[in-house]
């Protein structure tokens, strides 16, 4: 019995597409290796640059908002609050900044290999996680400075991290598929992220906001993930059930961006 491969104009089913992504997973490592090597070639500090930026931001937030403006917290100290918030936020913002280029950077490979193109934004997101691993590890140290030594919530940490991971991949996938059409997004993303950080409880707690603004914050999936992350690490005491609205939005967005990318899979090559 001979097995055949068929190439035709029919749309690939989602099952076949997923199967093909899993078949081509061996390519993820060399693509990431290549991207990282290209990114840091001929630099003296190399990967340190990715760590420097978030740590500088955290230090500045602690100095200005923690000591000078004295933002009131319900619970815990300000350093661990900013550190946990910024660790998540940095992943989101890095994924958003870098995914726009994910397909364009690899256009030669796209023209040569018949692999599902969603691999490239996935690789970008994994690269961002790998670059932020130090920041995340530092964020975990807040466990030792907490007032309550109740570590039972830690069992939720893997769930939250996996959720964060999947959502960041979805974010990257969506942005890369959109940027292909019009490169405007490459310029727009920094502005959007700059605005969005003010509507996310990264360096201030939601408790100091007026009520009408709180409603909007609950719609923000970034906020949900950050608050959940803080809760599992014991930085905040409780999580408002309203944050689950954000999680549902994140879930819908994840499904949507996968479908969105899949629909454009075949025509991406025409826009490169």
């Amino acid at each position: 019995m001979i097995s055949y491969r068929i190439i035709n104009s029919n749309k690939e089913t989602f099952r076949d597409y997923l199967k093909r992504i899993i078949q081509n997973r061996v390519l993820i490592y060399p693509i990431i290796l290549k991207d990282t090597k290209l990114k840091y070639h001929q630099t003296f500090l190399g990967g340190l640059w990715t760590i420097l930026y978030p740590f500088l931001s955290v230090v500045l937030y602690v100095i200005f908002f923690g000591y000078i403006f004295k933002i009131p917290l319900e619970h815990g100290n300000y350093l661990s609050f900013v550190l946990t918030g910024y660790a998540c936020w940095n992943i989101f913002s890095n994924v958003s900044f870098q995914s726009g280029n994910a397909l364009i950077q690899n256009q030669e490979l796209i023209r040569k290999l018949s692999i599902p193109k969603i691999i490239f934004p996935i690789c970008k997101s994994i690269t961002v996680w790998y670059e932020n691993i130090v920041l995340l590890l530092v964020a975990f140290t807040v466990l030792f400075f907490n007032e309550n030594k109740d570590y039972s919530r830690l069992i939720w940490l893997p769930v939250v991290l996996i959720g964060l991971f999947v959502f960041s991949i979805a974010l990257g996938t969506f942005i890369s598929a959109l940027t292909i059409y019009k490169k405007d997004l490459n310029h727009g993303i920094p502005i959007i992220m700059q605005a969005l950080i003010w509507f996310t409880p990264v360096f201030y707690p939601i408790s100091i906001l007026p009520d009408f603004l709180k409603k909007f914050i609950f719609l923000n999936p970034f906020a949900s993930f950050i608050e959940l992350f803080r809760w599992t690490l014991g930085v905040s005491d409780k999580v408002s059930p309203h944050y689950f609205i954000g999680l549902i939005i994140a879930f819908i967005f994840t499904i949507f961006s996968f479908i969105f990318f899949k629909k454009r899979e075949d025509i991406i090559i025409d826009y490169l």
Binding site: S3, Y4, R5, I6, S9, R111, K112, S114
Partner: peptide
């Protein structure tokens, strides 16, 4: 790498 508009290819 690109899809045909019509027709098919069968490969072993």
């Amino acid at each position: 790498v690109i899809k045909p508009s019509s027709g098919s290819i069968r490969l072993q």
